[in-house]
Amino acid sequence: MAPLVLIAETSIALFVLFRRPTERISMRLGDWLLAATATYAPLLIIPSEEIWPAIEPLAVALVTFGNVVQISGKLFLRRSFGIAPANRGIKRDGMYRFVRHPIYAGYLFTHIGILMVMPSLVNLVIYAIGWWAQILRIDAEERLLSQDPDYREYLTQTRWRLVPGLY
């Protein structure tokens, strides 16, 4: 699992450093605060004494699956990756054929798996705050991207934001 996390986090640093320039980026402070909250809140979780061995294999599978999904999304975006809402080109292939925000979908599965292995009220609250910000972040990104006719067409082709059939 550690190699997946290493790839996931190193790719963020590289893609942000070498990202493609954009003329359409949100300058709204709230959008940047949402991006920061959604990105950094999960770093606040704490180890839990409570362990549920019966669900550990499912939790590990979710964490692994989530990491693979979000890494795939990042590798497909490459230089179009960013933290705050911006338009660096519309992606429609790869994981983006299935959901409009596969990186966030991958994080969702990973976070559910981690919460299953480290269950606590504190961790649940931290993830709830992070995911509240993440949903608002998705709305902010889509508000900015919807100004592009290519993205509006993409919305008709890829219905789901995070999880096909749910959201």
Results as ranks from 00 to 15, higher is better:
106 G>Q: 09
11 S>Y: 05
134 Q>V: 08
106 G>D: 05
47 P>M: 04
71 I>E: 02
84 A>Y: 07
82 G>M: 08
75 L>C: 03
154 Y>R: 11
62 L>V: 09
63 V>M: 14
7 I>S: 04
101 H>C: 06
160 W>E: 07
128 A>C: 11
156 T>L: 11
160 W>L: 13
30 G>W: 07
126 I>A: 06
57 P>N: 04
58 L>G: 05
17 L>W: 13
148 D>N: 13
128 A>Q: 10
155 L>H: 05
92 R>G: 07
41 A>W: 01
140 A>K: 12
132 W>C: 10
61 A>G: 11
27 M>S: 12
12 I>R: 15
108 L>Q: 07
55 I>P: 00
17 L>M: 12
102 P>D: 05
135 I>C: 02
119 P>C: 09
48 S>F: 08
124 L>W: 10
67 N>Q: 13
150 D>Y: 09
69 V>Y: 04
23 E>G: 13
2 A>M: 08
86 A>N: 04
77 L>V: 03
147 Q>D: 02
103 I>Y: 06
74 K>I: 08
162 L>G: 12
68 V>A: 14
153 E>Q: 15
153 E>I: 10
139 D>T: 10
150 D>F: 07
3 P>Y: 11
101 H>E: 01
55 I>H: 06
81 F>M: 13
141 E>M: 11
104 Y>E: 01
83 I>W: 03
39 T>W: 02
50 E>G: 07
91 K>V: 15
167 Y>N: 04
116 M>T: 11
121 L>Y: 01
96 Y>P: 01
95 M>Q: 10
142 E>I: 08
111 H>M: 01
109 F>E: 01
116 M>W: 09
